[in-house]
Design a protein around this nucleic acid. Structure first.
Length: 472
RNA sequence: GGCGUCGUACCCAAGUGGCUAAGGGAGCAGUCUGCAAAACUGUUAUUCAUCGGUUCGAAUCCGAUCGACGCCUCCA
């Protein structure tokens, strides 16, 4: 087994990866809040996690992967009178919060499917694990980390040693309430709610009984409770978007380690944002691009996947249609290349082309060297293209490497096939052939144009044969 | 105000102390062709935001400047 190196946010350096148990890697990834569609920026994070998972598998590990579904609405702010994203979404669409959660969960799973992202072993919903969350809060209460205010149970962050070590927080420098006013009852500016009381006189659609009164769990407790429930008190990898570093993950550490007294997570990995001209793509800003919109515009999920492979997960990626088009072009060229390889193997009279293992290993080593260096798929993609241009390899060898690398890329390269040409088009091709033989160039060109309008392109080759390709 | 990140060709980008600065897209030239497209061949950064410093040697390390961005509110 080759060494795998990952950038650990905890400590901010690249470290050699070693799992707790020899062959199984336990991963928890923060999932979506299902009050709306995921936008293409959200999806970039799940793509990065998919690449991580595929690289672990490529390296011979078994992966046990848990993703949560946040179906409890989190308040817009502490001071807010109780409207939350889920309830807001429900109101907007005239449905119950439960229906909203169900609908957007399915939409999310569909997006992942389009992107060929492997599903986790466990999907866990916050609302299915209220009991575990309450128990965790009780544990923290017993150990003296909590206090109660008029609106909820809070975590006293001054009681937790090294609070903020993940984010390198300079607590003194934080400007509390820079953009929003906070509860005055909080003891420290970094304190956060573990349990929120239902507002008086307001009937929430989602609320539960607890030892502290009717209400709902705080913003961060679900991830601590569920990750430990499914993966144990200490597990290997926890991932999410970079925005989670300073608050969400910082608080998860405080909650979990406060209760167990043990290290919560060994490797923290964070994916950078997809940005657009003006900055990050944000759901709260209203306008955002979703995968279904890209599909409508004629891009496939895999086109977008290839686009995301153009850069490293820890770098911001600027989205533009121009960039997406060039990725799509590149991806199409790659698929054409594969079709040519398949053709040349099936047309070859020599049915026993030998695969030379040492040549294969040369390229496999190059590939793994890239991807094992903190998930450098972009470099891996470069290796793929270089390999395809290596004339010392025969088509069988190339194709076997393509399939091998695709275990990491996830571009479904094995399924790439030449499109079926409809009879209607074949007839036109015959007609044009006849015209060409009679040197009726004008007519031949007209037929070619007609075929083009029907979505197919004709390419006349030197040997007199005509290739028909679907226009992508 | 504090903290953090980034700046490599026309675009997307790999490379983070030492062979000719990967790869993809796009462009250009040639071969081929009834024409076109495709294909093939060649080609497009003496230079890595700028200016200094460290070093035998820097895109890579250090400092300053300029520019872009993220976080300090829930957020991928």
């Amino acid at each position: 087994m080759k060494d795998l190196y990952l950038f650990n946010t905890l400590g901010r350096k690249i470290e050699k990866f070693t799992p707790i148990s020899e062959n199984i890697v336990k991963i928890y990834c923060c999932g979506p809040t299902v009050y709306n569609y995921a936008h293409i920026g959200n999806l970039r994070t799940y793509f990065f996690e998919d690449i991580l998972k595929r690289i672990l598998i490529y390296n011979g590990y078994k992966v046990y992967h848990v993703v949560n579904i946040t179906d409890v609405g989190h308040l817009v702010s502490d001071a807010d009178e109780g409207e939350d994203k889920m309830e807001k979404g429900a109101k907007r669409e005239g449905k119950t919060v439960w229906e909203i959660a169900e609908y957007y969960t399915e939409a999310f799973k569909k997006d992942l499917h389009e992107l060929n992202i492997l599903y986790p072993d466990v999907w866990c919903k916050a609302t299915d694990n209220i009991k575990e969350q309450i128990e965790l809060i009780q544990c923290l209460e017993k150990k003296g980390f909590t206090y109660i205010t008029s609106d909820g149970v809070y975590y006293d962050t001054s009681k937790f040693k090294n609070y903020g070590k993940l984010a390198l927080l300079d607590i003194e420098g934080l400007e509390e309430g820079k953009r929003i006013t906070f509860s005055e009852e909080k003891k420290n500016k970094t304190d956060f709610a573990l349990w929120k009381f239902s507002p008086k006189n307001v009937k929430r659609q989602m609320e539960w009984d607890s030892p502290w009164g009717k209400g709902f769990p705080g913003w961060h407790i679900e991830c601590s409770a569920m990750s430990m429930k499914y993966l144990g008190e200490t597990f290997d990898i926890h991932c999410g978007g970079v925005d989670h570093i300073p608050i969400h993950h910082t608080n998860e550490i405080a909650q979990s380690e406060g209760c167990t007294g043990k290290q919560f997570v060994r490797y923290w990995l964070h994916g950078e944002f997809l940005i657009q001209e003006k900055g990050k793509m944000a759901k709260s800003a209203g306008e955002f691009l979703t995968l279904p919109v890209l599909l409508e515009k004629g891009y496939s999920g895999l086109d977008y996947r290839y686009f995301m492979m153009m850069t490293h997960y820890r770098k911001k990626l600027k989205f533009s249609f121009k960039a997406l088009d060039s990725a799509k072009r590149g991806f199409n060229n790659l698929k054409d290349e594969i079709i040519k390889l398949k053709d040349s193997i099936s047309y070859s009279k020599d049915s026993n082309i030998v695969i030379n293992t040492s040549r294969l290993n040369f390229w496999k080593d190059k590939f793994i060297e890239n991807i094992n260096d903190d998930l450098n798929v972009t470099g891996g993609l470069g290796v793929l293209w270089d390999m395809l241009k290596d004339n010392s390899l025969n088509p069988k060898e190339k194709l076997s490497l393509v399939y091998d690398f695709d275990n990491v890329f996830g571009l479904k390269l094995k399924e790439v096939e030449r499109e079926e040409i409809p009879d209607e088009i074949l007839k036109l091709v015959e007609k044009r052939k006849a015209a060409k033989l009679n040197k009726q160039w004008k007519e031949a060109d007209e037929i070619r144009e007609e075929i083009r309008k029907k979505g197919f392109e004709l390419l006349d080759h030197k040997n007199g044969e005509t290739e028909i390709k679907k226009i992508k």
